[in-house]
Simulated assay, not measured.
Amino acid sequence: MAAALEVVGERWALLVVRELWLGSYRFGQIVTGTGAPRDRVAARLQTLEQARIVERRRYQTTPERYEYHLTEAGRALIPILKSLLAWGREYAISSDDPLRDRASAGCIGRSVSNN
Results as ranks from 00 to 15, higher is better:
residue 24 S to C: 15
residue 107 C to T: 13
residue 1 M to V: 08
residue 75 R to W: 03
residue 36 A to E: 05
residue 110 R to M: 13
residue 24 S to P: 12
residue 25 Y to P: 15
residue 112 V to M: 12
residue 45 L to Q: 04
residue 54 V to L: 03
residue 49 E to I: 03
residue 36 A to P: 13
residue 40 R to Q: 09
residue 70 L to W: 01
residue 39 D to T: 15
residue 32 T to Q: 14
residue 41 V to H: 01
residue 39 D to G: 15
residue 76 A to G: 12
residue 54 V to N: 05
residue 16 V to N: 06
residue 86 A to V: 12
residue 6 E to R: 15
residue 54 V to R: 05
residue 66 Y to L: 05
residue 65 R to N: 13
residue 63 P to A: 08
residue 85 L to M: 13
residue 89 R to F: 04
residue 102 R to Y: 13
residue 65 R to D: 14
residue 67 E to N: 06
residue 55 E to G: 08
residue 88 G to I: 04
residue 2 A to K: 14
residue 59 Y to M: 05
residue 7 V to A: 15
residue 33 G to P: 04
residue 87 W to D: 06
residue 14 L to Q: 11
residue 109 G to R: 06
residue 45 L to M: 07
residue 103 A to W: 09
residue 72 E to T: 14
residue 112 V to F: 03
residue 39 D to V: 14
residue 83 S to R: 10
residue 87 W to H: 09
residue 8 V to C: 09
residue 64 E to A: 14
residue 106 G to F: 02
residue 27 F to L: 11
residue 98 P to M: 11
residue 93 I to K: 01
residue 111 S to V: 00
residue 89 R to I: 07
residue 82 K to I: 09
residue 84 L to I: 14
residue 108 I to N: 06
residue 63 P to N: 06
residue 88 G to S: 15
residue 100 R to K: 15
residue 87 W to F: 11
residue 50 Q to R: 12
residue 90 E to M: 00
residue 80 I to Q: 05
residue 75 R to A: 02
residue 13 A to E: 04
residue 106 G to V: 00
residue 105 A to F: 08
residue 107 C to F: 04
residue 10 E to G: 12
residue 102 R to K: 13
residue 110 R to F: 10
residue 30 I to R: 03
residue 107 C to N: 09
residue 6 E to A: 07
residue 2 A to P: 04
residue 35 G to Q: 10
residue 67 E to M: 04
residue 72 E to G: 07
residue 101 D to I: 02
residue 8 V to K: 01
residue 70 L to H: 11
residue 86 A to Y: 02
residue 49 E to K: 09
residue 79 P to H: 02
residue 41 V to R: 02
residue 115 N to T: 05
residue 6 E to L: 06
residue 19 E to D: 10
residue 74 G to M: 04
residue 40 R to P: 04
residue 43 A to K: 14
residue 72 E to F: 01
residue 33 G to I: 00
residue 93 I to G: 06
residue 52 R to P: 00
residue 27 F to R: 01
residue 86 A to R: 13
residue 80 I to K: 03
residue 87 W to C: 02
residue 1 M to K: 13
residue 63 P to E: 05
residue 67 E to S: 11
residue 113 S to P: 15
residue 53 I to P: 05
residue 66 Y to H: 12
residue 6 E to G: 14
residue 59 Y to A: 08
residue 36 A to K: 08
residue 31 V to F: 02
residue 26 R to H: 07
residue 3 A to G: 12
residue 48 L to N: 08
residue 44 R to T: 10
residue 4 A to S: 11
residue 56 R to M: 11
residue 21 W to Y: 08
residue 20 L to R: 07
residue 87 W to A: 10
residue 67 E to Q: 07
residue 42 A to W: 11
residue 65 R to V: 01
residue 14 L to W: 00
residue 69 H to P: 15
residue 7 V to C: 08
residue 83 S to E: 07
residue 56 R to F: 00
residue 69 H to C: 08
residue 33 G to E: 03
residue 62 T to G: 07
residue 58 R to F: 00
residue 48 L to V: 09
residue 89 R to Q: 05
residue 102 R to V: 13
residue 101 D to S: 12
residue 35 G to N: 13
residue 112 V to R: 12
